Simulated scan of single mutants.
Amino acid sequence: MAEMSILARRRIEATFAKGVFAEMAREFGEAAAKRVLARAVIAMAKDAAREFAQAAPAGADLAHFRAIQSLWRAEDALTIEELPAKADEFHFNVTQCRYAEMYRDLGLGELGGILSCQRDAAFCEGYHPALALTRTQTLMEGASHCDFRYRWVGGAARPQGESGG
């Protein structure tokens, strides 16, 4: 049996989150509901990242991080333009995002950033302290593209999959 794609998983999560968010907003107010949802999603992203890092054959490094990006691209979920970068960097723009489209189609455009975009920096934190993300804009917020700029800063892990033991 094939494992479920991340896009399919996010659709299920979003459908569930929509109902939970609506109830939390009625009970505690929309601002509090957004804070709770954001904290939960960040914690989930960090936990998932730690699992990916632990499963990295040579340990968490930039080469492994680059390799697992294909999981988020499955089902043509992202149209990516890779950009030149140094050995300790990984840069790309997302020019089409089915995640953002899905959240809008589900009536969750306002929560898409919480449910999806904020995961990216949290994922870096959970994956390895040396992995840093800079992003100044997203399609979810109405920009022409998402600008992902990853850097491996310090830390003992190897950038770009250099061998080590």
Results as ranks from 00 to 15, higher is better:
C117V: 13
R50N: 03
A77K: 00
E3R: 15
R26E: 07
V94H: 05
R149F: 01
D105M: 09
A48S: 09
H64G: 07
M44I: 02
L115H: 07
Q118V: 14
S5I: 02
L62K: 05
C124Q: 08
E110N: 10
I68C: 04
A45T: 07
D105F: 07
V153F: 01
L83I: 09
A45G: 05
G29K: 10
S70M: 06
F28R: 15
F148A: 06
E23Y: 10
T79K: 15
E13I: 05
K86H: 05
A132F: 00
A33M: 13
L7G: 10
R104P: 05
W152R: 01
D147E: 03
T79P: 04
A156H: 03
A85L: 01
R98Y: 04
A45V: 07
A121R: 14
E81S: 02
A58C: 03
G164Y: 00
R135C: 08
G109R: 11
M140H: 03
A55N: 09
F92E: 15
D105G: 13
G112S: 11
A63G: 11
G155W: 02
A38L: 15
Y99I: 12
H128N: 14
F21D: 13
M1N: 06
R73F: 12
I80H: 02
A31Q: 14
G29Y: 11
L7S: 11
S116E: 07
P84V: 03
D88E: 11
R73I: 14
Q118E: 14
A8K: 15
T15M: 15
G164M: 02
P57Q: 01
E110A: 14
I6S: 07
T134Q: 07
F90G: 03
V41R: 08
R119G: 04
Y99Q: 14
E13P: 05
G142N: 04
S5P: 10
W152H: 10
F90D: 08
A2V: 09
E141W: 00
L139D: 06
Q96W: 10
R10W: 09
L115M: 13
A100H: 13
A67H: 06
